[in-house]
Amino acid sequence: MDNPIPNSVMDIPSVNPPTGGEDSEVILSVNGLHVWFELRRFGFGVAGYVRAVDDVSFDLKKGEAIAIVGESGCGKSSLMKTILGLYKPTKGDVTFEGKSVQQLSGRDLQWYRSQVGYVQQDPYGALPPFMSVERILAEPLIISGIHNSEKRREQIRKVMEEVKLYPVEDFLPKFPHMLSGGQQQRVVIARAMIRNPKLIVADEPVSMLDASVRVEILRLLRSLQQRHNLSFIYITHDLSTVKYFSERIFVMYAGKLVEKAKINELIQNPLHPYTQALLSASSDPDYHNATKFREVPAGEPPSLVKPPAGCRFHPRCNRAIADLCEVEAPPEFTPQPTHSTLCWLYR
């Protein structure tokens, strides 16, 4: 079922220079988004808030791919789920094609959901184990009111060919546990694509996969994005995969986007000390690594219930400016036109 040529570029484009997005319209806009979760005291009352997303803003253009990079617990999942309409923002909003997502309901909400595809991290968990591939792919269509099974089958066939799950007939009756990790992830991608969405949100789509299939899935996502001119939000902790994928990259730390840049700018010239630490911690396979220590800050990300005053990175930052960083939260500085950061070093 696989292409017999094991290592060719095939029809999947490899790393293309970042394209799209430059002049096109904004499709998704996140404005001053706050997502706080209440911590309930036993009984009644609120003991505090988990500030999972704290004042995040960005625009996503049609056909543009962005990456949000951060460690676990930095709030990137909450940001993503708010964009997907699964969480309600505490403050600020998410607008899609000019409409505020949290104010959508009924038909409009269904329409929005059909416009956004969601690719999850763990492909096995993302697929109901008791449904066949055909059924899994039919579900979103049924929910969208396509009751003609012939029509559904046609669409399922089309999307399966697009994610290269062929021969289609062989895969339709299979259950998730009968598929390999890579194939499962293709089903997840097919499900995200089946209603021809304009935006795909991918949460660590390859982190659970083996190294040898990761690239295959990344290329598939990239080719789908380019072929359909999709807007794409790629959420990951792994910097090394980002550049094969997106034009812009946002680094998230403790609920805030601490740096926004084009990917090459960020890799060549990271501004925020946290970004610098991330880059320094990411290793490429190299035997010299064994004899070097990595320069990474000690300590761990702060609690989102009581984040440190001022800059949230300052307790771990070796370049913190006394009497400033621990007092006042840095605003966004823009040392280069397409490169901004929340750091007092660039005031």
């Binding site: 094991p6 490899s14 890579g182 299939v213 290329r219 090394s240």
Partner: peptide, 22 residues
């Protein structure tokens, strides 16, 4: 060789490849 070539690298522009099949 293929496993090594499949690793996305931060500091090189080499194109990663993937291994077909399972």
């Amino acid at each position: 060789q293929m496993l090594m070539a499949s690793v996305p690298r931060l500091r090189s522009d080499q194109d990663p490849i993937f291994i077909h099949g399972q």
